[in-house]
Design a protein around this nucleic acid. Structure first.
Length: 273
DNA sequence: TTCCAGGACCGGG
DNA sequence: CCCGGTCATGGA
């Protein structure tokens, strides 16, 4: 592994960032592990290799990009205090312990919005496959042959037939109209980030193919609004089985979205259904 | 074959 | 407000 590495930059103690959990917990779809357990991905138009070595997490970024990646990986946020609140029901405590080391990535807004539009009524392997094709077809080729996520302007200029190779079915027009809304300025990410949650929610649901769940995911993963609590089929099942009737996730407070991620990850990977 | 996947939308009760 | 059908697609 060391032979080809041009750079080795320390990012964080391994106890603060579990790469496998963070990249495989369902919040993102573009980070892939190679044969030597190095994760490779892209954000802000930059390719990154990141890996664990002993008690540390390292990457190959130049030191001048350190703050970009620490921000993307949300390393400036304390997760121990909010996680310590997730004590009941007992199931939630179990989920929080199981998911320790997950960080909610600060993904780029357009990528998050587009990705979760694609995610609807779809399984994770196929979501990854569709997004991978989208990036290879219309993204920019970076180092290591990795492609960037195509920006909204690029997508907005496409036709529905140009999205046909994605095989994403009825979601294709949703992708196009969302891209056009972003380009025209009728959807403004900065404005959404500054709005009260209810207003941002209403604004997002005006988009075709964006309902409560996709809007919540975008708020959490694209705007890093940690109080957002997306409920999909897995969360429904987990809430139904392990939480009181009419349970209100708002009692989890401003980090409810983190609890949601712990639950989703545990329910999907470590629970029998 | 039917069911399901990080749903949304529309119609009718 | 909730309910059922419908919308592509592919894997189990």
């Amino acid at each position: 592994m060391d032979k080809e590495i041009k750079n080795k930059l320390f990012l964080a103690p391994a106890a603060q960032l579990d790469l496998v959990k963070t990249f495989e917990c369902g919040q993102c779809f573009r980070w892939e592990q190679d044969e030597s357990s190095v994760y490779k991905g892209v954000a802000h138009g930059k390719a990154l290799s990141i890996w664990r070595d002993g008690e540390g997490i390292f990457c190959d970024a130049p030191e001048s990009d350190l703050s970009i990646w620490r921000n993307y990986l949300d390393l400036e946020t304390d997760y121990d205090c909010p996680a310590a609140v997730f004590t009941e029901p007992e199931y939630l405590k179990t989920c929080a312990e199981y998911g320790k080391g997950i960080r909610i990535l600060r993904q780029e807004p357009w990528e998050a919005l587009c990705s979760f539009i694609i995610s609807q009524c779809n399984n994770i392997p196929r979501i990854k496959q569709i997004i991978g094709t989208l990036c290879r077809l219309y993204g920019e080729k970076l180092d290591d042959g990795i492609y960037s996520f195509p920006d909204a302007r690029t997508i907005a200029a496409l036709s529905e037939s140009e999205l046909a190779p994605l095989r994403c079915g009825y979601r294709a027009p949703y992708i196009l109209s969302a891209a056009r809304a972003v380009c025209e300025g009728s959807l403004d990410f900065d404005a959404l980030a500054a709005m009260p949650a209810d207003d941002a929610f209403t604004e997002l649901k005006r988009l075709q193919g964006v309902g409560s769940k996709v809007a919540s995911c975008f708020m959490l993963y694209g705007l890093h609004r940690m109080d957002s609590f997306p409920i999909d089929t897995w969360m429904k099942k987990a809430l139904d089985r392990h939480f009181p009737k009419d349970y209100d996730p708002a009692v989890l407070g401003s980090f409810a979205g983190l609890a949601q991620q712990y639950i989703f990850f545990y329910a999907r990977t470590n629970e029998e259904w």
